[in-house]
Amino acid sequence: MSVDVKTVKRVAHLARIAVSEDDAERMTGELNAILGFVEQLNEVDVSGVEPMTSVTPMEMKKRIDVVTDGNKAADIVANAPATDENFFLVPKVVE
């Protein structure tokens, strides 16, 4: 499978990365090189093979459902580019 410039622009939008016309052209070539390289996986017979879900055979750890953390609003917003009274500020989303 290979991608065209239109697909690259659609994927870039899905990934929320702005691309110029030139970027999209260049990325098309790069992505096709990588997709061409991974193509060889199709020759592997995977009938009856389960997809891997965990590399270590272990049951997922669960913890007791109690509050162990909190009251850290100031820490959480400390690195944000724009905040107001422990809220993150973003451009208007709802009119």
Binding site: V38, L41, N42, V44, V46, V49, E50, P51, M52, T53
Partner: peptide, 9 residues
């Protein structure tokens, strides 16, 4: 999915 199957192999 194909890659995760190959990973198991």
């Amino acid at each position: 999915l194909q890659a995760q199957k190959v990973r198991n192999l």
